[in-house]
Design a protein around this nucleic acid. Structure first.
Lengths: 160, 160
DNA sequence: GGTGAAAAGCTTCGTGT
DNA sequence: ACACGAAGCTTTTCACC
């Protein structure tokens, strides 16, 4: 993955397409003060450099009938490689798990973020899915009462 | 926000554009087995119903020089409205905070996900930013050792 | 990096089933 | 509610300055 130098214009391009990927190259060029050709060239280079990953559509969690978000801290009985690998494979197969990270600095091994339609599903998820995985020792759940921030835009200030 | 009924085709449309929003209406129509006109109409209706939120570009965290992800549990001295409101306003102003939720079921009040370039920034963030907020009583940090799952696609299985 | 032209592709109608 | 087809527009992509 080649590291390319990002100047002020690159950062403005990234800021804009992070916020709205439906913008046309024509409009993007105008916004960043460039003509369309070099603007398109920069975007292509940012893709080739691996800085631009992909374009997605974000749906509305509540409108889709998924009002509940929980954060789950999972501890395993031990950190044997097989236990970890199996746990992670199972987790990857649960599409309600939006995020999962192996963490340190806590007594838990993994932190998960999970979305769900209702409390009945919550019980099902914990008992029939999470707890069925081999090596799961303890589960601690925190319910999200209110989402204060949820961003997909990475900060760019550190590049200046 | 009107609730509309989602049939099989709507779900296939949502699944596809969640994965890749750069697809044209022509290709999308073919994928879901529709001609372009009704496909475009459905997408428009999904937008008007508030189910489709927006289109964004996802950047690569590591390529951008932000290899560190931490999860922070913050406890406040009390839950007075002013303390909460001020905390949330400050947090919203930190663009390295990717996620923040008011939570229950834990001894902490808030859970944050924060990305950063290095350990020096970590110290800066904790001491000069988080700890400066009025009413912050304690901070517990967990470092992400490995990202196992990170999705923006919401599950659709519960709609069937 | 800017400009302009050409070509390709897409979306949006109207019409018919 | 969907399919088809044509019209009109936007966008991308060159070659050249």
């Amino acid at each position: 993955m080649p590291t390319i130098k990002l100047d002020r214009i690159d950062r403005r391009i990234l800021a804009e397409i992070q916020r709205d990927s439906s913008i046309s190259n024509l409009d993007l060029a105008e916004k960043v003060g460039l003509s369309p050709s070099p603007c398109a060239r920069r975007v292509r280079q940012l893709q080739e450099a691996g800085i631009i990953d992909r374009q997605v559509t974000l749906l509305d969690q509540e409108a889709l009938g998924l009002p509940l978000t929980i954060y789950v801290q999972v501890s395993l009985t031990n950190q044997a490689t097989g236990i970890l690998e199996n746990f992670e494979r199972q987790i990857r197969g649960f599409d309600e798990v939006m995020e999962c990270a192996l963490i340190t600095g806590s007594d838990a091994d993994y932190l998960l973020k999970v979305v769900m339609p209702d409390m009945a599903y919550y019980e099902h998820f914990l008992l029939k899915k999470l707890n069925q995985i081999d090596g799961v020792a303890s589960i601690r759940t925190s319910f999200s009462l209110r989402r204060v921030v949820l961003r997909t835009e990475l900060p760019l200030g550190h590049l200046q």
